[in-house]
């Protein structure tokens, strides 16, 4: 028993099928499995350009059991709004889920995301955040953290990570949460709570990528957990604007209980150019994110 759901009660039906072309240790593959376990056959998935486009595999077949609307990069939330509108008109049950990366969420797709949120359209947007444009070959995004190497930031990114969950919170949507592929039961529970709420729901799923972050594929879950244990990633949930730190992150409100950020940095190749001075800066940014978030609790 983890949280409110027992692992043995989770559906065994495979929504992500074996033989798909994801990289070994892929966090998006994990996320898709958990989405299936949480919401199953009710889902209609809207997928903008990204790694998941490739993970579907080649036509005339695909490696998933969700109905999927593939759509251009900057259109996902708007398409989802249309799907939801049609299903409302037809009186059909459907959980319309946007499955978008950091680009389709925070950058090229940001206006569309904000528009759908402001209108309160009845969809769930999941940002699968692997912190760079992985599908095109590891280029920096606005969600790449400070100091991280990418193929467009060879000496490390000079800017900080955009705080999209808080931006979505300021849209006053009824549900905002963060999650991590390292904490599947927490993610599944959040999905099951989100689906009960009518309106716009936003879930930001932290998704450590072995290919892009330069770590061994066996460590995907370990790196995801370290992000939480060092305070680099904070799990929270906000229903109607009221922020509650989620159980896995609760101990780390206390700064002294967090593992050193250096532990998280050193098992990934992408921070190899980070100097001690830059590490200090990164640490102060993490403190700042905690301070800002806890003001809303």
């Amino acid at each position: 028993m983890v949280g409110g759901i027992s692992i043995r009660e989770l559906p065994r039906k495979k929504y992500l099928l074996p033989g798909n072309p994801s990289c070994p240790g892929c966090p998006e593959a994990l996320g898709l499995r958990y989405l299936g376990m949480a919401l199953g056959d009710r889902v209609i998935l809207v997928v903008p350009a990204g790694c998941s486009t490739v993970i579907e595999g080649l036509a005339p077949n695909y490696s998933m059991r969700f109905p999927i609307v593939n759509v251009p990069f900057a259109s996902a939330d708007a398409v989802a709004s249309g799907v939801a509108a049609a299903k409302e008109v037809l009186g059909e049950d459907a959980v319309v889920v946007v499955w978008a990366g950091d680009g389709a969420t925070a950058d090229i797709g940001f206006a569309t995301l904000s528009g759908a949120a402001e209108r309160g359209d009845n969809i769930i947007h999941i940002c699968v955040d692997n912190e760079a444009y992985m599908n095109t070959g590891i280029q920096r995004s606005s969600l790449t953290p400070y100091g991280a190497w990418t193929t467009t930031t060879w000496t490390g990114k000079k800017e900080r990570k955009k705080d999209v969950p808080l931006i979505m919170l300021m849209h006053k949507v009824p549900y905002v949460a963060t999650a991590s592929v390292g904490y599947p039961m927490d993610f599944i529970e959040k999905l099951r709570r989100a689906v009960l709420i009518k309106g716009f729901k936003y879930i930001h799923l932290h998704a450590p990528c072995p290919t892009g972050w330069r770590f061994d594929p066996s460590l995907t879950v370990e790196v995801a957990k370290l992000a939480v244990e060092t305070g680099m990633w904070i799990l929270f949930e906000a229903v109607n604007g009221k922020v509650k730190i989620s159980p896995p992150s609760l101990p780390y409100r206390d700064r002294s209980r967090r593992k050193p950020i250096r532990d998280y940095i050193k098992i990934q190749g992408r921070f190899r150019t980070l100097t001690d001075e830059e590490l200090k800066k990164l640490e102060s940014m993490v403190d700042d994110v905690w301070d800002t978030l806890t003001k809303f609790t």
């Binding site: 759509v71 249309g82 049609a86």
Partner: peptide, 9 residues
């Protein structure tokens, strides 16, 4: 995009 989503649904 919205019209495409609705029409395809």
């Amino acid at each position: 995009a919205t019209v495409f989503g609705a029409a395809s649904s």
